[in-house]
Design a binder for these strands. Structure first.
Length: 124
DNA sequence: AACTTGACTTCAA
DNA sequence: ATTGAAGCCAAGT
C-alpha cells in the first residue's frame, strides 16, 4: 500500500532529478510538473523529508522569485548557496539570475523527461 | 472542529 | 527594489 502522501513525494523526487546540472527551477514549477499545481509549499516539505541516500539535487529548487528559500542567516542557506556555486550557478545577494539559470521546461513533459529514467522505473 | 505551520506564490502598495 | 497581505493546502496540534 502506498499512501497518497508517498505518491506525491515520489513524483516530486522524480521531477527534481530531471533538473539539469547548472540549472534551477521553483517549488511551484515542480509542483505543477508533478501534477499538483498550487502545492509549492508541499514540495518544500517533501524535499525536507527526502532520504539523503537518494542524493536528490534539492539545492536546484529555489523560490519563484529567484531567491534561495532559506533565511539568509540559516545554515541551510549557506549549504545551498555553496552547492549551487559549486556547479557554476551565480548566487548574488541570495538570488539567482533566472534569465541565465532557469531550467527551460517545455510544455510537453515527455520532452523534458530523461527517456532512460521514467517515473515508473523510479518508483520501482 | 479550530488553529497553526511551512525550504511557497502572487499581487498591490 | 522591498514589504506585506492574502491565497494556498495537507499535516500536525
Amino acid at each position: 500500500m502506498s499512501s497518497q502522501l508517498e505518491d506525491f513525494r515520489k513524483i516530486v523526487y522524480y521531477w527534481v532529478q530531471q533538473i539539469p546540472k547548472g540549472k534551477v527551477t521553483s517549488y511551484g514549477q515542480i509542483a505543477k510538473l508533478a501534477g499538483y499545481p498550487r502545492h509549492a509549499r508541499h514540495v518544500s516539505k517533501a524535499l525536507g523529508a527526502a532520504d539523503k541516500a537518494l542524493n536528490l539535487p534539492w539545492f536546484r529548487v529555489i523560490a519563484a522569485s529567484g531567491k534561495i528559500a532559506f533565511d539568509k542567516d540559516s545554515d541551510g542557506y549557506a549549504k545551498q548557496e555553496a552547492l549551487l556555486k559549486k556547479e557554476g550557478i551565480v548566487v548574488k545577494k541570495g538570488k539567482i539570475d533566472l534569465q541565465q539559470f532557469a531550467w527551460e521546461v517545455v510544455d510537453n513533459k515527455e520532452q523534458n523527461a530523461n527517456k532512460d529514467f521514467s517515473p515508473e522505473e523510479f518508483f520501482r
